[in-house]
């Protein structure tokens, strides 16, 4: 999407790095949140399952949290990369009120506590002093949950706070993003837990816990997927029915325009409904295919939303900007 465009109405000021950032942020936040949640529940025996006590959870959340922190890190990098002046990104903390500043703080804090949590699983022979500080692990879990939720909601709030963007400017967007974030997080965790790198961390007696976790995640995700389908369709239909012409125009683009194929085919059918069925059927479809599809859908959603950034045109603006040169015209470079 780097081709030139000087049409202020169709120009996208936030492009693919932001879409990736929103996706990775939500995903990472979701992973931290779910990991913290499950770690607490399992270790404190809040639920019981099978023969092995879930308290033997050990390091099975180490990899997901590491991945979560890494994804947040990549997301933050993309956010910085997207800046017009990446080198001065620390300016983001100057304001007190800006949502984007809250987001940055949440990211830093989530990554920080996620990292601390991860440190518990460094090789025992390093014999670090805090191995026994389980209260710290609990604190980390709680804060990972708090900041994880914060990030998931924040990615939606960032967009939905913009009065200028009718398709974004609705409280339904944080809901949608949160559902999607949780869904993609479940998917990735299920994927991570079921695949070989996870087992390298897991002790033999933890494998069973892991299987339990994966099963639970499949159930959770199949619910989330259904919820996401509903929220998504309601969201778009709500925009379609909205009084705002611009929101409606964008909704039409989703329902039967340029975004219809990725929306109906890519997201609703292949990206959400197929995983739902797959989770129910189980097997490789559930362990490998469904999570990947859900993840892809999460990314696709962020892209479609980011590129649905239409601003309501002031009468005459469309005609005006459509006649402004794109930027690659010969005369613009002829006399430099």
């Amino acid at each position: 999407m780097s081709h030139m465009n000087n049409n202020k109405l169709t120009k996208h000021y936030w492009v693919w790095p932001i879409a990736w950032y929103l996706f990775l942020g939500g995903l990472g936040g979701g992973i931290l949140c779910l990991s913290g949640l499950f770690d607490l529940i399992f270790r404190h025996g809040i639920i019981e399952a099978g023969s092995e006590p879930l308290a033997q959870v050990g390091a099975i959340f180490a990899l997901p949290v590491f991945i979560g922190v890494a994804l947040l890190g990549i997301g933050s990098f993309l956010l910085v990369f997207e800046l017009g002046q990446p080198l001065v990104f620390l300016r983001v903390f100057i304001s007190r009120t800006a949502i984007i500043k809250y987001g940055a703080c949440l990211l830093v804090l989530a990554m920080g506590f996620g990292f601390i949590y991860f440190l518990f699983f460094l090789p025992p022979e390093w014999n670090l002093f805090y191995y026994d500080w389980l209260w710290l692990r609990d604190v980390c879990c709680v804060l990972m949950m708090v900041f994880g939720v914060g990030i998931m909601v924040y990615t939606g709030v960032l967009l939905s706070s913009m009065k200028a963007k009718p398709f974004w400017n609705t409280p339904a967007l944080p809901v949608l993003f949160t559902v999607s974030a949780l869904s993609t997080a479940s998917a990735l965790m299920a994927l991570a837990a079921g695949l070989w790198p996870a087992t390298t961390f897991a002790l033999p007696h933890q494998v069973e816990v892991q299987h339990f976790l994966v099963e639970q995640l499949h159930v959770i995700d199949s619910v989330l997927v259904i919820v996401e389908i509903i929220v998504l369709i309601v969201y778009v239909l709500m925009m379609y029915g909205a009084g705002n012409v611009t929101a409606r125009t964008v909704a039409i683009k989703w329902l039967r325009g340029a975004f219809a194929v990725p929306f109906w085919g890519g997201m609703i059918l292949v990206g959400l409904f197929v995983p739902f069925v797959s989770y129910l059927t189980g097997g490789i479809m559930a362990t490998a295919v469904a999570p990947v599809l859900v993840l892809a859908t999460g990314l696709l959603l962020r892209f479609l939303i980011v590129y649905s950034d239409a601003r309501r045109p002031i009468p005459g603006e469309e005609r005006y900007w459509s006649r402004i040169p794109k930027g690659d015209e010969e005369f613009l470079s002829a006399w430099k």
Binding site: G84, Q85, L158, A164, R312
Partner: peptide
């Protein structure tokens, strides 16, 4: 003071803000 996060560009309902793409790299 600007770091060009463009959040203000997106937040303006009147399209009154813009980011110049012809400025020197890493310094728009």
């Amino acid at each position: 003071k600007c770091m060009a996060c463009k959040v203000c560009v997106n937040s303006c309902p009147y399209g009154a803000r813009d980011l110049s793409s012809y400025d020197r790299p890493l310094h728009s």
